[in-house]
Write a protein that binds this DNA or RNA. Structure first.
Lengths: 102, 102
DNA sequence: CAGGATCCCTACGGATACTG
DNA sequence: CAGTATCCGTAGGGATCCTG
């Protein structure tokens, strides 16, 4: 109940995660990825997000350790995105939160 | 693990909540309010947020049912903001999430 | 196929001044 | 005191075209 105001800066990474997921596209993307290994084009169709934004969000989510990017050295190139354990845990918690809110 | 893509739109309110809290100011505000009844000017100083933004965020958080606005008919006017039970629950959950992330 | 580069636009948020 | 009103700069994100 009584959080120390002085420590508000310690939440920097958490805020970044919140921001990434709160993006209009972010939530849709991470949910789409949660359904299993997903490729760029699939995400583009599933989320109706432009490639530019999609690329940015994926990079962001990957840097935060919520999703993992696996590139296969094939022709044509194939890249799959999956949730990391952390991402999975986070998403689970968020879905529970969502239920409380309605 | 397998969320239905078709139901992604059902999270509209949840997304709004996420957005409100993910705002650079939003998180600081709700944390400041969590320390007990807080007045506008106190929030302004504690969060270093301009009155315009502060006003907008407070309205947003109140509409979402996370904080409550109590106005006392006095001169000079006094308004206090407090966390609602929902807001408290949410903030608690978020702090737990924050710990997982580091 | 998976993105990077470029252009462009608007909507969020800061600063300042003013009011019930 | 607790906000609104106004002006304005910036950056986030769409559309489109291009490349390893």
């Amino acid at each position: 109940m009584c959080y120390n105001i002085g420590s508000m800066e310690d939440y920097r990474k958490f805020k970044q995660v919140l921001k990434a997921i709160a993006h209009e596209a972010g939530w849709d993307i991470i949910n789409a990825v949660s359904q299993g290994p997903t490729r760029f084009t699939n995400l583009e169709r599933a989320t109706k997000v432009s490639p530019r934004t999609l690329s940015e969000r994926l990079k962001e989510l990957a840097e935060l350790g919520l999703i993992e990017r696996k590139a296969y050295p094939e022709v044509p190139p194939r890249v799959e995105y999956t949730l990391t354990p952390l991402g999975k845990e986070l998403l689970d918690s968020l879905h529970k939160l969502a239920k409380k809110i309605g």
